[in-house]
Design a protein around this nucleic acid. Sequence first.
RNA 1: GCGGAUGUAGCUCAGUCGGUAGAGCGCCGGUUUGUGGUACCGGUUGUCGCGGGUUCGAUCCCCGUCAUUCGCCCCA
Length: 415
Amino acid sequence: MSGLQPPRGTHDLIGETMRRHHHVVETARRVLRTYGFEEWSTPIFEDTRVFSRTLGETSDVVSKEMYTFEDRGGESITLRPEGTAAICRALVTNGLTQSLPQKVFYHGPMFRYERPQKGRYRQFHQIGAELIGAESPLRDAETIAMAQDILRELGLGEHVTLELNTLGDLASRQAWREALVAYFRDHADALSEESRIRLEANPLRILDSKSEQDRKLLDDAPAFADYLNDESRQFWDTLRASLQAFGVDFVENPRIVRGLDYYSHTAFEFVTSKLGAQGTVLAGGRYEGLVEQMGGPAIPAIGWAGGIERLAMLLDSVPELPAGIALVPMGDEAVLKAASIVRTLRSAGLRAEIETRGNMKKRMERVVKSGASHAIVLGDEEIAKGVVQLRDLSSRDQQEVPVADLVRVLSTGRA
RNA sequence: GCGGAUGUAGCUCAGUCGGUAGAGCGCCGGUUUGUGGUACCGGUUGUCGCGGGUUCGAUCCCCGUCAUUCGCCCCA
């Protein structure tokens, strides 16, 4: 109870928590394969510039949430706060900009120095996918469809809705941003204190504000739709048509913006109301300048990342270990015999364990509690005859089975 | 970084108007080491989150701290 605790915002993945976590990753991995995505694993720490350059110096993540330190050689190192920048770095480092598209997924721990809350940790886990070399909005739609498939496979289809927005291209966004800043400057008095700060640092964030006074102001703010140039508008139209073609339902939400600077055009979030303030469960968008910032050519990409802890908390059912077979040997000789039987069962792919503690009643109690489907009881008498007692724990039927026939009986269910 | 709540056995929680603590569940053993989750009997568990202060005496009061949780910020 006292003594050493895990550091603030970290937690141990044990038992049910770990099974849920694992189920999320395994399910995602299965779906991702069907889309032709391949798994990459990049270092957990990187040269600080990988993140500081690309995420935008003014973003909160870079300015106050990164775990940055100097290593013994004097290099500035950062524990990765997200996955995308590192994937782009790896793409360039490994010379893969010549062979596009690259369809990549990853999962693992990320680190952000934030105030912990339910579903928000300092070390948390993400699973993410990046399609680098995404030539058309069709790829955006496909990548979003993939995310939706994963959520459905996890049984979260009912809990989660897709919210979609366009951020336009750089030119559209700049024109709109100027109009927006001008508008808010004129109404600075009516803005909340926080939004007045955002006005200078990251004005698009004001759209996201939860303050009521800001919301009122937003109704009359310049609408982005009026600033979309033809190219951006066409992209947006094609994206929505493609999503429909892939069978993806979505809700347009003009207030969706991105915390990180490298996004353009597509921005989306899968949202739930079941996790309090941490409602976003998976989010992503299109980014066009990131590979270039890593020293490669300008390559457009689309990607997303999901919070594994948040997804795991939403799962209705908890995956269990497969039911096993329990050996209950009575007597020293029987224990050794059980060891050899258990070995045979395991090499046949069955889960098998030996129960040796306590009297027979206690052993059977533990065996039943462990969720085993069968018990195998053996003592001197059985050993002499070369058989075991095989007991089906749900029907309570017990039969005598020759040791040599065990695997066959267990896998076919008949003698 | 800001504001609120919480912290007692492995778990859920009660309690002491200040005299070092309890219930249920769980766990362990027993009812002849050859048979089932329910029965009966017995047993086990705590630096009452940590540090300091007040007091003859603190788990209880005060201060600090750590952690959890809810909201803000931000985000997955």
